[in-house]
Design a protein around this nucleic acid. Sequence first.
DNA 1: CATGAATGAGAGTTCATTCAT
DNA 2: TATGAATGAACTCTCATTCAT
Lengths: 207, 207, 207, 207
Amino acid sequence: MPRSTKNKHQEKSEATRRKLFAAALRVFLRDGFEAARIEDIAAEAGFTRGAFYAHFPSKEDLFFALVEQEMQKHLTRLRTELENCTDEASRLLAFRNHYATRSPLRAWSILILEFKLYAIRHPRIRAQLVRSYRSIREKLKVESLWQSAFCGVKGDSGEKELLHAALNGLVLQRAYDPSSISAAQMASLLGSLFDCIVGSKLPQPKP
Amino acid sequence: MPRSTKNKHQEKSEATRRKLFAAALRVFLRDGFEAARIEDIAAEAGFTRGAFYAHFPSKEDLFFALVEQEMQKHLTRLRTELENCTDEASRLLAFRNHYATRSPLRAWSILILEFKLYAIRHPRIRAQLVRSYRSIREKLKVESLWQSAFCGVKGDSGEKELLHAALNGLVLQRAYDPSSISAAQMASLLGSLFDCIVGSKLPQPKP
Amino acid sequence: MPRSTKNKHQEKSEATRRKLFAAALRVFLRDGFEAARIEDIAAEAGFTRGAFYAHFPSKEDLFFALVEQEMQKHLTRLRTELENCTDEASRLLAFRNHYATRSPLRAWSILILEFKLYAIRHPRIRAQLVRSYRSIREKLKVESLWQSAFCGVKGDSGEKELLHAALNGLVLQRAYDPSSISAAQMASLLGSLFDCIVGSKLPQPKP
Amino acid sequence: MPRSTKNKHQEKSEATRRKLFAAALRVFLRDGFEAARIEDIAAEAGFTRGAFYAHFPSKEDLFFALVEQEMQKHLTRLRTELENCTDEASRLLAFRNHYATRSPLRAWSILILEFKLYAIRHPRIRAQLVRSYRSIREKLKVESLWQSAFCGVKGDSGEKELLHAALNGLVLQRAYDPSSISAAQMASLLGSLFDCIVGSKLPQPKP
DNA sequence: CATGAATGAGAGTTCATTCAT
DNA sequence: TATGAATGAACTCTCATTCAT
């Protein structure tokens, strides 16, 4: 009941949760969402199943928590990078690189892809995922990131989605058949697409 | 040994196979590859599991057969459309529309997306899928389709992949959160991307 | 309806039956009774399942028919060998060799062993097998074989069973772990046992 | 982490394992190895299939564990009996009785017989079984049992195998057709065979 | 007689989740 | 909090047998 004890417990609990998180990320990236076994995650963290269920109600809930954490990380990093840029040009370049050379996130992209497909078949999950993404975007002011990168010139006609879609599609393509497109080609294509969009050459809706 | 008997058997067998194919397509589109149960496919076709295994060695084999059949259908249709065009301009337009307004194939694209993800985690399947795609592309001379549409002007720097990637990515995005991008926006974006690529504005590899 | 036609049919039918028999023997010896598949037997004979069921009501029935045929073959051969002996001594020797060097029948022994075990768990089969054996023994006058070999000296205290049991047990032992006993050792042991029994050294029940 | 909890778990786990073992033994003896269903074993122990798989990786593994346990039991009992004998003569007699009156192990022998046949058709299992037997024999010093019983007089020409083979063969014969040989006859025959072997009358390899 | 399509019971195995400790 | 035993539903795949042709 003494405060310090309570804190000790809290700290320990937090540590377990963190370990489970990290382990889950590793296992999900390695095996995918559906194939990942709770037991493996717990074991990877040095615990057993019970510990998992003491901290998360279900595999899906853990995944959501993980998504929010990772998205936050990625977006915060991007924001920091952009804020470190002194002028508009370098900010645009940083943004471009972010999209064109996202190879370190390959496995993560594929994991998200898989979960989106899973969500499509599970309405409740789908709704939760949409909500989750929306709240992250709001919390981290993703719109303003684009605004700041593009000087807020134009209204959104879905260019963001196109960029993401192309990125995800290419990542998947390379994961499934690396010989069909090289990493360099992929970066080049994404860069070009980025230029296209930014150069206002693309986003002209059909009249 | 009687000829008529053999034919009767053959006919019946083919009819069953066709029914199973059609049922499988419906169930796969509805439930996805992994979640689709053999029993449901058989029942949807009006049979029991045993009938399924009399015609296909496994769910995966059926899926491959289905993929080849459907790809063949789609590509043949596209080829026909292109061949019906009298001049180069209309051919290009038909090609553009093919990519920009592929909504009827939404569910199919998602199914293929899911199977590619599945393949990533299952090396043997992956190899088979790559091989299968390659053979289809060769058999139906997909390269020549592009050549004919684009008058064989430029070498391949992966634009085809970019187009497909963007298409698949957007289809998934809309399936999982339709409110994030409208069908019209999607068509518009894909059209613009197509123009971009054709207009040789995109495919300039980094020097 | 003409006689010759009927005979043609009968002949053909008989030929099919014979082929199925021979095929079944091969498959049973190769795969064992339970693991042998009707389809494999039919295919091995150059037919399909239907032909099998046109000639035999079930796998078990085929097996019984097979057992009777083979037993008859083996016993007839033994009888012939014994009858070819001019004197009593050579007859005894032939009998001894029959038991001590039965290696060609290794697979058959094991098959019968397996079926006996199967029969133990299936009462109806067991009863039928016992009956079947009994009728074969009577038809082929197996008792008289022993009598003739041993000059009918002594009453049966089960020596025959002991000899068979030892033979079967050793065949199994060698099949399952050939390194535990050599073929030569086995022949030697069986020969010695035979001598023991014949020399009236063995069958002296405890006083 | 608390010690008591761990012990509770361990105890419960061991109790369940023991129950599963006992149940498996009963079901295997009743139905045979192949026909025994995991579900029946679990139910017989008062559990469901899941519990089974929490304790044993497969039916085969359970069987091997069972074999080792039972062999150990049997051999330990035999060793104890022999060690209780004060003189050489009574030791030999005890050994003789062990072989001649093994009726209580009838069902066990048949189960092992069946598994050996199973092993013949399944190479991996066969190898494992051979290894398993060898390790048991070494661990329990089976050779020395024979040595002690027979005063280490003679080298091994396979008499042990003959004795076992005859025993197993007769057990099977009686199980499948009890009317073909009485229990008394069987004991008598085995006793005589034992005497024969011990009396050095049998193991004279052909010159 | 022979075909071979179709049945359907049944097996082993996996794993998210629950719950007593 | 964490353990880990136990559940039970689900799934794929096999094969002897039936039966319309």
